[in-house]
Design a protein around this nucleic acid. Structure first.
Length: 386
RNA sequence: GGGCAGGUAGCGUAGCGGCGAACGCAUCUGACUGUAAAUCAGGCACACAGAAACAACGAAGGUUCGAGUCCUUCCCUGCCCA
């Protein structure tokens, strides 16, 4: 185990431990809104709300340390005027912990039918009212200054996992230009609300190792407070994703946090941590939770299945959240079948608490030094179907 | 007793000469990875399992190449009148 204390532009990242026989590491990220213990999972709160979960539940039950917001969605609603008047997103929604905002780069991918990419930026049609908007690398920094997130993300293009080489090449060229322009705007501006904000550039390059290496090198040379890996878990096989993480993490600096964007399943998360990833986010625990899927330390349950109808045992007797013991499987199934809102609340709290428990356990085992033995056992358990 | 309206898969309903029959609900199963997702997809008599066979239009007759669909009788339900 070794330690390093280094002060970077806006943010501290203190590496606390690296488990032997693996690239997994434990650390502490210090922001103006609090300290984050890594590896960490970050619940997604796209429009400034982690769907179906109150902030006191997020803090006290889920034990979230940082949440996400989304630039595209917040820009459309409530809009920058309201966010500026509110004094930023922390003041607006009441979450006083760290916030990371995605740039809208993912919407370039997920709303691809409603956008056109040009050198200057991404032209969008609002999914809400069809109105036209332009997202530039600079503009997206400006918007995130107004939102006031602790970590701002660069605007990138996130191509599908099936993209061919020539498209991936072209796409990466655009993303690299955008990264540099966004970085320049970031350095030329400062936070509006009296605390500092970081800017994370994003590695792209689809499933092509040479493009990934080039991208990682470029990103590293910017010297940001932390670096992100994007364009994964978008249709490529999981093994390919793991390979790309390894390729990229050989290059990304070890003394800065590495953020794997949009990942993933509990097994994905453990594999990513194993390969040196520090931060992850995913809609899966909340979205799949609302749709009846519960992730547990013993496997996956579809709560709508008939087999739970008369199972009065607790949701998860040894689970980390109060909902795990407060409610039975039969009751939660009844709530889902009856389309009761409480079902979605319980499932969201449970899944998020499980995800945070999982990364917390990973951290513990990294520090204790037996992560390499613990991980495969855990991967097997969390992928079972109950 | 008379009049009117009806009887279609667990329920509700569409179809009014080509239907092995649409749709909704219920029910069962699956999907969901930087959230256009409290969403989406599929199954759903019985039996069998592999391409063949047998299956829902109240019942029985009839007309027709062909009938939920037209005709006759009967049974049942609801409403109204005696």
């Amino acid at each position: 185990m070794w330690q390093s204390w280094r002060k970077f532009a806006d943010m501290d990242f203190k590496l606390q431990a690296i488990a032997s026989g693996t690239a997994a590491r434990a650390g502490l990220i210090t922001t103006d809104h609090g300290v984050i213990q890594t590896p960490i999972f970050m619940p997604v709160g796209t429009v400034g709300s982690v769907k179906a979960v109150h902030f006191h539940e997020l803090r006290d039950d889920v034990k979230a340390q940082i949440i996400l917001g989304n630039t595209y969605h917040l820009y459309l609603r409530p809009g920058t005027d309201i966010l500026r008047q509110a004094g930023g997103l922390h003041r607006f929604n009441g979450w006083d912990g760290p916030i990371l905002t995605d740039s809208g780069g993912f919407q370039v991918f997920s709303l691809s039918a409603n956008r056109k990419l040009k050198e200057e930026g991404a032209y969008f049609r609002s999914h809400i009212d069809g109105s036209k908007h332009l997202f530039t690398p600079e503009g997206v920094v400006d918007i995130q200054r107004i939102i006031g997130s602790d970590i701002m993300m660069a605007l990138d293009e996130c191509p599908p996992g099936t993209a061919d080489y020539s498209y991936a090449r072209k796409s990466l060229d655009l993303t690299l230009k955008w990264l540099k322009r966004g970085w320049n705007r970031y350095q030329a501006t400062e936070g509006l609300y009296g605390f500092t904000q970081s800017y994370f550039p994003i590695v792209q390059g689809c499933t092509y190792p040479d493009l990934r290496r080039e991208s990682a090198k470029f990103v590293t040379d910017l010297g940001a407070d932390g670096n992100a890996i994007g364009g994964l878990a978008v249709g490529e096989p999981a093994e390919v994703m793991y390979d790309m993480i390894e390729v990229v993490n050989e290059i990304l600096p070890a003394d800065k946090p590495r953020y794997l964007m949009g990942v993933g399943t509990p097994a994905n998360i453990l594999e990513a941590i194993d390969r040196g990833v520090d931060m992850m986010d995913c809609v899966m625990p909340t979205r799949n939770g609302r749709n009846g899927m519960l992730f547990t330390a013993h496997g996956i349950m579809n709560m709508r299945n008939k087999k739970w109808a008369d199972d009065f045992s607790p949701l998860q007797a040894d689970g980390p959240s109060f909902v795990d013991r407060a409610y039975s499987k039969a009751y939660v199934r009844h709530l889902f079948i009856s389309q009761e809102l409480l079902a979605m609340q319980i499932a969201s709290i449970h899944n998020l608490a499980f995800y945070l428990w999982l990364v917390g356990e990973a951290r513990k085992h990294i520090i204790e030094g037996d992560f390499a033995q613990w991980k495969p056992m855990m991967v097997e358990r969390v992928t079972r179907r109950l």
